[in-house]
Simulated scan of single mutants.
Amino acid sequence: MATNRSAGGGGLGTRLLGTRLLDYLESKKNLAGSACGIVGLGLTLTGVAGTYWPVVVAGLYGAGALIAPPRRPAPPEPEGPTEQLNGVREQFGRLREYVAEVELPAPAEGRLAELMELYGALLEPGWVADVLATDPESVHALSRAIELDVPECVDTYNRTRWWTRLTPGGESPERHLERQLSLLHEEAERVTADLREAEARRQQTHTTYLEERGQRS
């Protein structure tokens, strides 16, 4: 068994070495070095290099390889709609864990629960999420709200409430929190309305197509 593993490991190492060698042979460094090496061979044939021609050829090859621009790494492939939405779902999962640990006044807590329910319905895997994934602006709006806005609302409320206990007076932090959550809920409703409108347009387009097809036949 050990012999088989060694043989397998040796074969893998050989393949990796061959791949690296092939990559280098196709690299700009090797091409530039080879071009300079050919110049060295030309000097050798004309007698310029003399008896030191191997040193001249090797030196010109090395110089060409050094001055050649390095290989640029391939740019990362942009995330597709599915990957982006999966990222938002992960953010939403972390947000759920965060808000479960905080205590909020009853009105704000109810508003936050409604907001979280709406986010969850939009992100639930299925045809609704598939429609959402086709609208990058809506995905961005949800991602921003889930990752930044909601945690900021809760965090600033807790901090402001602590200071208010020391120095009472001024506008209630609870009122600010309720207003912030209401604005975020309105934004989520606009996202929902936009998606619903897109589906309505799709339905109308199909109706028009069927009507026109019926008239042609």
Rank of each mutant, 00 (worst) to 15 (best):
M1I: 03
M1N: 04
M1Q: 08
A2W: 14
N4Q: 05
R5T: 14
A7L: 15
G11N: 14
L12T: 09
G13N: 13
R15S: 04
R15D: 02
R15P: 02
R15H: 12
R15I: 11
R15V: 07
L17S: 02
R20V: 11
L21W: 14
L21R: 14
L22F: 14
Y24D: 03
L25A: 08
L25V: 04
S27Y: 13
K28M: 13
K28A: 12
N30L: 11
L31N: 00
L31C: 08
A35M: 03
A35H: 09
A35D: 05
C36H: 00
I38R: 10
G40P: 01
L41E: 04
G42I: 03
T44N: 12
L45Y: 14
L45I: 13
T46W: 14
T46I: 13
G47E: 07
Y52N: 11
V57N: 01
V57G: 09
G64E: 00
G64L: 11
R72T: 05
R72Y: 10
A74V: 06
P76F: 15
E77P: 04
P81V: 05
Q84Y: 12
L85Y: 00
L85E: 06
N86K: 13
V88F: 12
V88T: 06
R89C: 07
F92P: 01
R94W: 15
R94V: 11
R96T: 00
A100W: 01
A106L: 10
A106D: 07
G110E: 05
G110Q: 06
R111I: 02
L112N: 02
E114R: 13
E114T: 08
L115D: 04
M116E: 04
Y119I: 08
A121R: 11
L122K: 08
L123F: 08
G126T: 00
A129Q: 00
D130G: 04
A133C: 02
T134A: 15
P136L: 15
V139F: 07
V139I: 01
S143W: 11
I146M: 10
I146L: 11
I146R: 09
E147D: 06
L148G: 01
V150W: 04
V154R: 08
Y157T: 00
Y157A: 07
R159G: 06
R159I: 01
T160C: 11
R161F: 00
W163L: 15
T164R: 14
R165T: 03
L166S: 08
L166R: 15
L166D: 10
T167V: 10
P168L: 12
P168Q: 10
G170W: 12
E171V: 09
E174C: 06
E174W: 06
E174D: 07
R175I: 05
L177R: 05
E178T: 11
Q180Y: 10
L181C: 09
L183E: 07
L184D: 05
H185T: 02
E187K: 13
E189A: 03
R190F: 00
A193P: 02
D194L: 10
L195V: 01
E197P: 04
A198C: 06
E199C: 11
H206L: 15
T207F: 00
T208L: 14
Y209V: 06
Y209K: 08
E211D: 09
E212M: 14
E212V: 12
E212T: 10
R216Y: 10
S217E: 14
S217W: 15
